[in-house]
Write a protein that binds this DNA or RNA. Structure first.
Lengths: 200, 200, 200, 200
DNA sequence: GATGAATGAGGATTCATTCAT
DNA sequence: AATGAATGAATCCTCATTCAT
């Protein structure tokens, strides 16, 4: 039992460190983020962090990969959603914009990795795999929408990929807080990418 | 004369260093880019770089700001272009995608700065100013296109900003070489953002 | 307790470093004294020194100011001494010559700072304050000696200042070890500065 | 002829550099004095200085040794002077104080070398030789003064050496401009070192 | 003769990481 | 489990010195 309690406490502390890392890395970059600063922001010592993560590289990897897995479910939820294809796309955009608006730290970390994909090949690879899983799923829904006459008929995969780029750009460029009206605008504009048939 | 020759030679060398910096910074980040590596890639010594730039910070600033100014003209050229609004938008997208495809280094540097805007406030500020100049101009053209019935009537500024995000995302996510067909796809998808009236 | 032990150990180590600095700085100058050499002479690493002193400037400042404070007491002890003014002056000279003979490192450091007072204004300022405190006290004793008919009547402050110069010069010019007879000579000569009445 | 003219111009320029060095070295120390700063203060380039002096070490050596030779004559002039021994000593003090007051740069350089005699053994050696020549001559005059009943009878060489220390200390500690009254005081006090018989 | 350009050697400082407590 | 202390390996930057013009 004690085992379990300890284990849980350990996981919680690990999580706290990871959370701080997710915030710090995109703000200051990999080399610009020091154990010392990270530790101070957590009220612990630098050496302690290394009890939870073998090295700075590992901390970075975990800070990138673990949240990525956690986002997989909500990000891909639209695939099993209810309603017409267009409805599902609309609600997906809604989810994505919301994620972009309120998880800017992690999104920024993703972009940091993508921007330096040569430097962080393993992490970037995981992102591209994620992007691919995502676009494959989205392509299906788009194709359904086109078949149903809700969307104009463009190359569905192209559209999916374009939308993925768009959502990344939105997260990158906008730094406003989640309550800003800009996010609403991005929602409306994003929908156009799918070329919905006008008189819907 | 000698003066001029020397001055010109100096500028050329400076340009070479800047070019290398534009490539290296986004690949390895600010701290990850060392004078030593930069110098070796240029076949000169690290100390020499410091004859042309006072410090690493200055080198970075110049690597960001000078190309930004150089891109201003082609990036904004669409505003004075010929043809219908839709034609001008199409050719603008063409230019942008071409820039994104072949100047990925600089675009990546832009994104690096935007992603770490707290760390590089001066540089990020310049980018936001640029983005603003750009979207203001684009908003006008979009409004013209809507007035002419070529584009569906959405909030023109929102569309402009959304497109700006899109083009950034495209540059960020795609790492393929300029001849890849993916760029063509992005061109087609990007146009949808403007919601062109279907039977055009 | 552990706290106390650690704190004490820390102070002791700090003291060792300071001691080495007091020796090294006047021998090789500020720039000529490197962390590497200092560290090697202490059998530690250069980085360790920086755990105890924030920078080379701080190390220098502490090496100058802390011993200065420690010398204050013995240097100024003559003011509260017993005996006639002349006796007190004689014993003061004795103390000073002894200090000069056996603390040549620190005295040399003082002179290094005075010689480069423009470069080390803060440290030099402290020395001038010390010199002033000192001459003010000495002036009083001299005046007493003059009133008592033990010393000829010259401007007491001038004499005090002149003696201060003398003792500095003695420390600067003589490099012999403390057992050399030269120090005894300086003791005798120094006394003359006070113009003692002959048939005492 | 051209030869001679050039040679003379060369000597003049060399002299200018030396002059700047004599000022700069004691102000900033050996390592703290850079060719760049020296050159800028002269309105020439750093490389030019090296056309006149082989290395920084040589420049330093010349800056120390050449003025030393030039001071030899006035410094030792008292030995051939006219008048009673006491008169000659008085006028010597006068000369020395004047030198100390108006050639503080060089005096400070001397002290810099003496203070770091282990670092600059050759230059320090020359100074000690100079000091010795000087004290030997002064010892003779003092002995004459004592024989003539003008000075009390102390060990003449001790007195000479003590005075030499004094004059160094005076130059070191006082930073006032030549017109300050402090110098006058030092003149009066210095004389006491020689223990003049009171009713003179 | 003078200098701008270039650089190698070196120095202060930072930091991830180790280890004893 | 947590950390303070210690350090080696960088890294930025400086500067004396060389050399081509």
């Amino acid at each position: 039992m004690a085992r379990t309690v300890n284990e849980q406490a350990r996981q919680e502390k690990r999580e706290l460190i990871l959370q701080a890392a997710v915030t710090a890395f995109p703000e200051n970059g990999f080399s610009g983020t020091t154990f010392a600063v990270l530790a101070k922001s957590l009220g612990i010592s630098a050496a302690t962090i290394l009890l939870y993560f073998e090295s700075k590289e590992e901390l970075f990897r975990c800070a990138v990969l673990e949240p990525l897995e956690r986002f997989r479910q909500p990000f891909l939820a639209f695939m099993q959603g209810e309603g017409t294809p267009l409805d599902r796309i609309k609600s997906m955009i809604d989810v994505h914009i919301r994620i972009a608006a309120s998880n800017s730290s992690f999104l920024r970390l993703v972009q940091y990795v993508l921007g330096q994909h040569q430097r962080f090949p393993e992490e970037a690879e995981a992102m591209y795999r994620f992007a691919n899983d995502y676009t494959v799923g989205l392509t299906t829904v788009i194709a359904e929408g086109q078949a149903a006459g809700q969307l104009q008929s463009y190359d569905a995969h192209e559209v999916a990929w374009g939308y993925f780029c768009f959502i990344q750009g939105v997260g990158l460029v906008n730094t406003d807080d989640p309550s800003s009206p800009v996010w609403d605008g991005m929602r409306r504009v994003g929908l156009q990418l799918f070329a919905p048939v006008t008189n819907q």
